[in-house]
Design a protein around this nucleic acid. Structure first.
Length: 153
DNA sequence: GCCAACGTTGGC
DNA sequence: GCCAACGTTGGC
């Protein structure tokens, strides 16, 4: 079992959006970065736990927890010309991009702010806190996951 | 295969 | 809105 941080812009898709979905489940589509794609396709497994991170917003940070409810399958938004995520290069018989389904687990009463995470030396090794980091799917260790979770729940 | 130019991300 | 950092593109 693995642990992850998934980043999303809350204006596009937030932890509240996930919570309010029917079945509290949603495909994690639109990943268009190869490194993130590789994690999604190869390493993100059903039952893995996810810290849901809000980026590009007023208070960037971890807003809650989700769980992987379905493993990688082709991201069909890449085939849809009307989608923002359309990619001419991704073919139905050999898709470039993949997605997983995620299910809501918990929303923290208060976001674990990026600032707070950066100030804590325990989290110096997180990809999330690296300068210039732009990866939207990041692995973290079980220990890091539990220590982050412990800050709120 | 190099690398400059460009577009995007994302914290501040 | 700024801009540093990064990934991608495309000419050579």
């Amino acid at each position: 079992m693995n642990y992850w941080i998934f980043k999303s812009e809350p204006d596009t898709f937030s932890i509240d959006d996930l919570k309010n979905r029917p079945g509290q489940t949603e495909p994690w589509n639109g990943v268009r970065n190869y490194q993130a794609r590789n994690f999604l396709r190869d390493d993100v497994k059903e039952g893995d736990l996810i810290l849901f991170h809000h980026s590009s917003c007023k208070v960037p940070g971890i807003a809650g927890i989700a769980i992987v409810s379905k493993e990688a399958y082709p991201d069909h938004t890449a085939f849809d010309e009307s989608s923002d995520y359309f990619d001419l290069k991704s073919k139905k018989d050999s898709p470039t991009w993949f997605m997983v389904d995620v299910k809501f687990v918990e929303k923290f009463k208060e976001v674990i702010t990026l600032k707070e995470i950066k100030e804590n030396p325990k989290f110096n090794d997180l990809i999330l806190t690296r300068k210039g980091n732009r990866l939207s799917i990041m692995p973290i260790s079980e220990k890091e996951f539990n220590e982050l979770k412990k800050l709120r729940s």
